[in-house]
Design a binder for these strands. Structure first.
Lengths: 335, 335
DNA sequence: ATAAATTTTGAAAACGATATCAAATTCTAT
DNA sequence: ATAGAATTTGATATCGTTTTCAAAATTTAT
């Protein structure tokens, strides 16, 4: 492996000058610059990131945390983020947290260790009090989820309004016994402000109270629902219960798919016996046996906005204003 | 940030001894080891990867290259790889290549720069002659795709046999005018042995010749097909052409989905007018309006086997034997 | 008790880059 | 032509580890 000294020797100049060329410092005379560039070319020289990092310069690398890459919502989000960062000259590292706080810390530690210039959190697994201290080491941007009153750029969809509208939509269609599924372990208020899922959940509840004048039946809350298999299990539970809901907000198209499949297997009529509302609008959702009514999230826009906010944050000191995108109901046959 | 010297000072010992504790070298007396561990604890000390890398020790990090993370086949493959590597104590870096050779080189350069201990290639974008030199810097494992006669572990599915069987399956069902779609830019022999897509393609052609005694019509070859939108376009081309195929091997469930959707929009009967065969068996494929007949790939097994082969390669010198998994036809309604 | 062998420890030299600061060179003005 | 200013260059310290290699401490053998 060629090092900076090899280049310096071949070019007949000092490492300082070579370093200047690498970092395009203007104080190098064109003739010598050319000499050095040729030498770098000839040796196939590439600066070693470890050495630069150790010396404390920027890494041009960003970490992005997501719960699971196999969730299409997150794979599309990451894809949008990565494409935008790529244009700005940054490399992206994807960190799957599997919803574990420790794994989120792994990403944050990369910030502290100067392995990355910033981290984009697409889900939040730790209380803000543990995330906050890492702000001194670099930039943090929140996408998709959010916390109130934290001094970082936040890009998100209006989950409250979206779920309020979706609930209103269900109520208007005559459903009153609404079930609710979520990937969360529990639905509760976060330590420092309102978080993602309770945002969805409060939009849901608020519409239920103010429009439907109905109280939510806690037996119809299903947590920890991620996959189609989880959806199937939920449907089985619904069938087995004495007091059955007549509609369900499924939390994702994946879970909705399982619900739909199991409903067919069990002879449950959709939407007559149970209306199903997904979230995400995956490519296949329009072409299912029962085309899925779902809430579309503006994932490309959010991803790209998040990446841009990060790049902006890295360049100047100003914190980008919070950006909030609307959710849209895509009406099909499952409601 | 606490450094190794801070720990040494607090423990009243030298950095050498601290380093020995970090790397659990046996030559440290238990009492002092305890002293140092306490100091590390108290300062929240974590060694800086950049410094260790610079010094040339192993990184416990692996790069995995894939064309696009939004392709479910690859997101599941990466997921399986990452889970297995995680158990073995390795961190995974995902590199999207977008099928660009330069991006694949980015991953290979991480090997040379000692940013990673190995790279797992899930697709091959460069000729072996350019990949080969990087073998001197670390381990390389090939998954999903393969090259003949290269000295690295290869984990793959039997694409030739799978596509031979699938073609036989179509022929047995009475289809003779078979079209073929692929994500590749072209279908051709690779520089150094047979590659992935021509493997699929030769299985296809070989069955066509030996069983069907039919010649493939090159007008029915569709390249560069990745998304559902691409599938829709292909169906439109098929409709517009004078000599229409009666079946198509779609290359992926995503493309098949587009084919199916557009067929419905255009009033083309599936499978009566056109049989559609997907690849991947995505979760939603069984529940489409027209349940998709597809070729299932053992993605979890392959991912996990690849990760294990990499870990083994890193530990001893022996190259894992090539592993080849069978493809399975999942019969549903689109054929 | 002493010498030899063994174990445990520490000082200092890497690793490959960047940044400071002073020296050398070139340019400008008289 | 010469002093002074401005520009370009290079020597060297530094970042935080690991790894020699030799010194110090301990154990074992005589």
């Amino acid at each position: 492996m060629a090092t900076i000294s090899d280049v310096a020797r071949l070019a007949g100049l000092s490492v300082s000058t070579v370093s200047r060329v690498i970092n395009n410092n203007p104080h190098v005379i064109p003739k010598k610059r050319k000499l050095i560039e040729d030498a770098m070319q000839q040796l196939g020289y590439v600066p070693r990131p470890a050495a630069r990092q150790l010396r404390g310069s920027s890494t041009n690398t960003m970490a992005v945390t997501i719960p699971r890459i196999v969730n299409p919502f997150f794979s599309y989000l990451v894809d949008a983020i990565e494409r935008t960062l790529d244009e700005a000259g940054y490399t992206t590292i994807i960190v799957q947290t599997f919803s574990r706080p420790e794994e989120e810390l792994t990403a944050l530690k990369m910030l502290r260790n100067q392995q990355v210039d910033g981290v984009i959190l697409c889900s939040i697994e730790n209380p803000w009090s543990v995330i906050q201290p890492y702000l001194q080491y670099g930039r943090i941007v929140l996408v998709n989820e959010y916390l109130a009153d934290v001094p970082v750029p936040i890009i998100r969809a209006n989950q409250y309004q979206g779920f309020y509208n979706a609930t209103e939509f269900l109520l208007q269609h005559g459903y009153t016994k609404l079930a609710y599924a979520t990937g969360r372990k529990q639905v509760a208020l976060a330590e420092n402000g309102v978080n993602f899922d309770s945002d969805r959940f409060s939009g849901f509840q608020s519409a239920l109270n103010s429009i439907g004048k109905v109280r939510f039946n806690p037996h119809w809350l299903f947590t920890n629902a991620h996959t189609a298999t989880d959806g199937k299990l939920i449907l089985q539970k619904i069938i087995a219960s004495p007091d059955k809901p007549d509609a369900i907000l499924a939390g994702s198209d994946e879970v909705a798919l399982g619900l739909l499949e199991e409903a067919q297997a069990q002879g449950v009529q959709i939407p007559a016996q149970l209306a199903v509302l997904g979230v995400d609008d995956q490519p296949s959702s329009s072409f299912l046996k029962i085309p899925l009514t779902t809430i579309r999230q503006p994932v490309d826009q959010m991803g790209s906005a998040a990446a841009k906010a990060m790049v902006a944050a890295l360049q100047d000191q100003a914190v980008t204003l919070p950006q909030i995108f609307p959710l849209e109901i895509v009406k099909r046959a499952s409601v």
